[in-house]
Design a protein around this nucleic acid. Structure first.
Lengths: 154, 154
DNA sequence: CAGTGATACATGCAAATGCATCTATTTTAG
DNA sequence: CTAAAATAGATGCATTTGCATGTATCACTG
């Protein structure tokens, strides 16, 4: 396999693309986290509840969760401490790996996730749906999925 | 003007689109900030230098910078303290508004921005360019620009 | 199967962050 | 023109974060 040096215009395009993706994320996130739903629970903590709620088995390893959020391992560990102290999640030892921790929602955690989730989804729709047509949203979704898949595989 | 209630499928699409945009941003950012360039300066601090370097006049008000980054006003104020202590930026009073602060790069700041920037752009290109075709990148850029513009106008 | 290295998560501690509040300036209302 | 309200940014303080490191378990090597 040969690797060709990228042209400077290709480099520039990639950089501009990332810049725009990043700024749009900042703009949307700024609005979302200002929403009243996140007075009850910071958005980063909500995100962990949400991630757990999406998972088919209902439980995830801490390191799996860590891949989904932009937090160091130690920060996630303490974030989970806070969620646990509030009775929203439960730690248990991974059955197949004595080092690992499985995290699951308590019923209070499920409740709160759904409650915040409903509001959050409304806010998202209000911000994203009028900005892009349905086709554009589908295309954006496809492209960001593809980008994410490539990065994850690298 | 009448507002029609969005269908649940429209709401779902918007939510999935945002979710994918957000996760892709997390995945890419995770890689980028792990790059060796950001041992010299945290990526958030670099971002301020970068923003200043892009600005035609070379100077920006703190509240303008604040719109571009995901930081509270007070955090930005102290981030700028750190940059100033390192001699990378200079505060000056806004000529047309005695309350305002204009921030500009020092020459050391320009140097460091360019130095980190070169490395950073290479890392971005390595991550984004192979993931999407040039046409796809242009389309992603267009869509995120459009989303950002809508959010900013709201 | 002992010993070495790797991995998963926790924790001490210094640094960064956000909220509430403060000061100073500008804008607006009367 | 003056007084009240709004805005820009700084600062005290409690919370959150990350780095470095610690402990426990697992994987690999000879």
């Amino acid at each position: 396999m040969t690797t060709t040096a990228p042209t400077s215009s290709a480099v520039r395009l990639a950089a501009e693309t990332w810049e725009s993706l990043f700024r749009s994320q900042v703009a949307v996130m700024r609005r979302l986290q200002a929403g009243p739903a996140f007075k009850k629970l910071p958005i980063k903590e909500y995100d962990v509840l949400f991630t757990l709620s999406r998972c088919p088995t209902g439980k995830l390893r801490l390191n799996e969760i860590n891949d989904h959020v932009l937090l160091s391992q130690s920060s996630l560990s303490r974030l989970v401490d806070r969620l646990e102290k509030r009775g929203l999640v439960e730690r248990s030892i991974a059955p197949d790996d004595g080092r690992g921790i499985l995290l699951g929602l308590t019923s209070a955690g499920q409740e709160l996730q759904k409650e915040i989730g409903r509001e959050h989804v409304r806010d998202i729709a209000e911000l994203v749906a009028p900005a892009l047509t349905a086709d554009e949203q589908r295309e954006l979704l496809r492209l960001t999925d593809k980008l994410q898949a490539f990065v994850a595989s690298k």
